[in-house]
Amino acid sequence: MTTHYLVLSALLFAIGAVGVLVRRNAIVVFMCVELMLNACNLAFVTFARQHGNLDGQIIAFFVMVVAAAEVVVGLAIIVTIFRTRRSASVDDANLLKY
């Protein structure tokens, strides 16, 4: 049983990672990050069940809290960038460099 959950978690994480690397739209990239976070949550919960303790569950809650906070800040930034530059492409936002 555990293996299935872990394979699903790995698949979700890989999809998320590829999405972050290949997509330009900041909203999509953002959603892919969420996907990776939730893949991790799944792995944590799986191990918590397998070992019969609550550590993994607690961490999963923490990740959700952090993800919620991240969404608040991240979406605000994306909206602000879109308003000023009329674009949500992460490749256009490349001013911070050498």
Partner: peptide, 17 residues
Amino acid sequence: LRRIQTGFARSYALSIL
């Protein structure tokens, strides 16, 4: 070395990965 800092977030993400 500072040329590595390209400003493309996705290339940073790749190196992190």
